[in-house]
């Protein structure tokens, strides 16, 4: 969920970083990558301050769109999105940079607008990278623990992520068997995601290069 919602933003940010030349680009670059290097708990705490019930962004969103993040699954999704964001942006940016810019020029001489040329040429050509970004983001979301638990706590059925559940079970007497099952689930999910992405990537790149 978090990955899906943040994908358009990730593409946009990747495009800005790959192509843009504007003041503050380095700052944006740093900001996007911050969750990658910050301790997850710190990120979660910052999210709590900003998007919590009394945080400025949280209040605004609740007032305008009725979206509440604190202690809800939406919050967990937001945390997952923020944590996965830098990974997605990196992968997408690299693949956008790998596309020959002159193809966009050609598209423009054929009647495309700049944005149209991006969507008709560059984006389809960088789909394998976008996909890789999504898988990375998904993996990160799946494993998200620190930021989530700090931001929206560990509420069963609402904000409990897979690692949080496993952690909880290992802290409970007699939970080892259940934890073991979940570990297997985690392995299966991760492996499945990897395989699916590999197949998709292969199909995509063979479609792209003919």
């Amino acid at each position: 969920m978090g990955v899906t919602a943040s994908l358009p933003f990730a593409v946009l940010a990747a495009l800005a970083l790959a192509r843009g030349r504007f003041p503050g680009k380095t700052l944006l670059d740093g900001l996007i990558h911050l969750p990658l290097v910050l301790p997850p708990v710190v990120t979660g705490y910052l999210l709590l301050i900003a998007f919590g019930r009394r945080g400025p962004a949280g209040q605004f969103l609740e007032a305008c769109c009725g979206i509440t993040f604190s202690f809800r699954w939406t919050g967990a999704a937001l945390a997952a999105a923020v944590m996965g964001f830098p990974l997605m942006v990196r992968a997408i940016r690299l693949s956008i940079e790998a596309v020959d810019r002159r193809l966009e020029d050609a598209a423009e001489t054929l009647g495309s607008s700049r944005i149209g040329a991006f969507f008709a040429v560059t984006l389809p050509l960088s789909l394998p990278g976008v996909l890789a970004g999504v898988v990375l983001g998904f993996a990160k979301a799946l494993g998200e623990f620190g930021a989530t638990i700090t931001f929206v706590s560990n509420i069963p059925g609402e904000t409990r992520t897979l690692p949080a559940e496993i952690y909880t079970l290992t802290q409970t007497p007699g939970g080892d068997a259940a934890a073991g099952r979940l570990v297997l689930v985690a392995i299966a999910l991760s492996l499945g995601a990897l395989i699916v992405s590999e197949i998709l990537a292969r199909r995509l790149s063979s479609r792209i290069s003919g």
């Binding site: 002159r102 193809l103 020029d105 050609a106 423009e108 001489t109 054929l110 495309s112 008709a120 479609r207």
Partner: peptide
């Protein structure tokens, strides 16, 4: 004028066909 409004058909040295 933007390239698309010029309506000048260009054939580039490296063809620049769209691979996808």
């Amino acid at each position: 004028l933007a390239p698309r409004k010029r309506r000048v058909g260009v054939v580039f040295q490296e063809s620049r066909l769209f691979p996808h």
